[in-house]
Write a protein that binds this DNA or RNA. Structure first.
Ligand code: MN
Ligand code: MN
Ligand code: MN
Ligand code: MN
Lengths: 220, 220
DNA sequence: ACCTTGTTTTTGATTACTCAAAATACAAGT
DNA sequence: ACTTGTATTTTGAGTAATCAAAAACAAGGT
């Protein structure tokens, strides 16, 4: 069985591969796992010896099919647990990540399938991230744009928040831009690129480009 | 923070103290934790140095107030998790122990209080074992007898199963003697001590003394 | 007093994970 | 080609948890 540490390495590698495909540099793992570079090198070697990763010296790592399957399983646990914590235990969506970070290693497959069933087999988590099914397949994503690129005056719905730092989630919470929120882009300031949007209650918010780029929307 | 291993040692020590008060011999921990004697000696030394246990050389260990508080917390997590798995996730009461054994170390206090709330702050787990409250106090237990000692012809209710081995739980499951079941003792065979009991549906079961001694009942 | 038996402790190793700090490789930039 | 800066690897060391096997101890029984 893979230890919690190994599971965290696998998940971090998968997330990086999904965000920027190609080889995952050692530094990305250093960053994601909060350890020093030497630690990553030695863990990666051990995991490569176990057949979970391929290690290109001085370049980085790639998941093997076995490693990927395990990583997807951990990601599924993480996201289903987050969904469970929000929907069943009524926890705040902006505080569930850390809890899930620990529980993803302790929840058995048996318990996980019970949770999935209880929740009606959800396909996205509270942050809008896709939940792979029990076989490891991600549902085909609907057409979605980041908020800074989408058309004016269309009825839209927030589907996903890409930046999941504590501060950004708090900001999103506060402005009411949570996944599920209805939104319409009123206009774009030509010079700055600042967006003016209308929220459900008629309230209006102005968003800088760097913020809008981290919010994904789809047709309402 | 106490590691999972340390939490397991603390919980095992607490359970032994509750069952047979006085000092807990090293051998009891060897047995409970499934490790060799030398391992227990060195773990116990480390935990004593941390102020979690008192170690009387060649005698055994006792929980310190700090160690006891931690142990009670772990036990509370274990039993609330078991209750949650049975009541909310509809898992079989005879298979939840192993799941709880892992989850008790991963569930945070915050999550635990949500679970307790969701369940209406239960005071006993699926096996009938008491769940301490958030301050670490066990509810005063109602008058209860082991089945081999109680009066004839009284309407009784099973409240607790002491032997929680897989086989015994399966037996209890099969005969329908689960906590909550109504039962009446019809007669006791003078020589052998074998009990004849009537269950809810009118079915009758014969129980040997060794079995009856592990089933606790209270007034129905 | 001596021996036997069961329990506990010691000793010496091993595995997994980690850090600090020094060494190395590589990609540019001049 | 040489220098510089950054990423990666190596080396040496430490902690937590474990085992195997030998040693020490505590009681009792003879
Ligand atoms: Mn994690
Ligand atoms: Mn998420
Ligand atoms: Mn446990
Ligand atoms: Mn229980």
């Amino acid at each position: 069985m893979a230890s919690s540490t190994v599971e965290n390495y696998l998940k971090a590698t998968l997330l990086h591969e999904q965000k920027a495909d190609g080889i995952v540099p050692m530094g990305a793992l250093v960053e994601a796992l909060g350890v020093v570079p030497g630690t990553v090198t030695s863990m990666v070697k051990a995991m490569a010896a176990q057949g979970l990763l391929e290690h290109e010296a001085r370049q980085g790592v790639r998941l093997t099919p076995i490693g990927r399957a395990l990583a997807v399983g951990v990601l599924r646990k993480h996201r289903l647990v987050e969904t469970f914590l929000v929907r069943t235990l009524k926890m705040d969506w902006s505080e569930v990540h850390d809890e899930a970070e620990a529980l993803e290693h302790a929840v058995s497959d048996r318990v996980l399938e019970r949770i999935s069933e209880l929740l009606g087999h959800p396909t996205t988590d509270p942050h809008g991230d896709p939940i792979p099914d029990a076989e490891g397949n991600f549902a085909a994503t609907k057409t979605q744009d980041s908020l800074d690129l989408c058309a004016l005056d269309q009825p839209l719905r927030v589907t996903r928040i890409l930046d999941q730092t504590q501060e950004f989630l708090a900001y999103v919470q506060e402005t009411g831009l949570k996944p599920g929120a209805k939104i319409r882009v009123l206009r774009r300031e030509p010079a700055s690129g600042v967006l003016h949007c209308e929220l459900a209650g008629g309230t209006e918010v102005a968003l800088g480009l760097h913020i809008a780029g981290k919010i994904i929307v789809g047709a309402a």
